[in-house]
Simulated scan of single mutants.
Amino acid sequence: MDELREAWAWICEEDALINDGRPLPGVQVATLIELLQPEEEEEDKPRTQR
């Protein structure tokens, strides 16, 4: 659960955490960030209708 909280903090406040001198997230937290963070590329793509 701590890793999930840390991942969410990195998603929401990345600049603040870096400015505070916090170390970059570990492998488990980075994996959670990838899963939780929306992919910007897909949002820009037009959706096809079926």
Rank of each mutant, 00 (worst) to 15 (best):
D44E: 15
R22P: 00
Q49A: 04
N19M: 10
R5A: 09
A30Y: 01
D44A: 13
L36Q: 03
L17H: 10
E42T: 15
D44T: 13
T31A: 14
Q49I: 12
E13G: 05
W10H: 09
D20P: 00
T48Y: 07
R22W: 01
E34V: 10
E39I: 06
I33H: 10
G21P: 05
P23R: 11
P38Y: 04
M1F: 07
N19T: 08
P46A: 03
A30P: 01
E43S: 06
E3I: 02
L24V: 06
V27R: 10
E43W: 10
R50H: 03
P25W: 05
P25N: 02
P25F: 08
M1I: 10
A16G: 06
R47T: 10
L32T: 07
L36N: 12
I11P: 04
E6V: 12
V29D: 09
Q28N: 11
T31M: 11
K45R: 15
K45W: 04
D15E: 15
K45V: 13
W8R: 15
G26I: 04
G21V: 08
E40Q: 12
W10C: 05
P46W: 02
E41M: 04
I11D: 02
A7L: 02
W10R: 02
L36Y: 11
A16K: 14
V27W: 00
E42F: 13
V29K: 05
E41R: 11
P46H: 09
I11G: 03
A16I: 07
I33G: 03
R50F: 08
R22K: 15
T31Y: 06
P46Q: 11
R5F: 09
V27G: 00
L4N: 09
Q49F: 10
A30G: 08
A9F: 02
G21W: 05
D15V: 09
E40P: 04
T48N: 02
E39S: 14
N19E: 14
R5Y: 06
E40T: 14
K45Y: 05
Q28A: 12
T48G: 11
Q49N: 08
L35Y: 05
L24Q: 12
A9C: 01
A30I: 00
V29W: 01
I18G: 00
W10Y: 13
E42V: 15
R50I: 06
G26Q: 03
E39W: 10
E41D: 15
E6D: 14
E3Y: 02
D15H: 08
T48F: 09
E34W: 10
E6G: 07
G21C: 07
R47F: 10
I18K: 04
E43D: 15
C12K: 06
I11W: 02
E40G: 05
Q37Y: 12
E6A: 11
N19R: 13
D20V: 00
A16T: 12
Q28D: 09
E6K: 08
L4G: 02
A30V: 00
L24F: 03
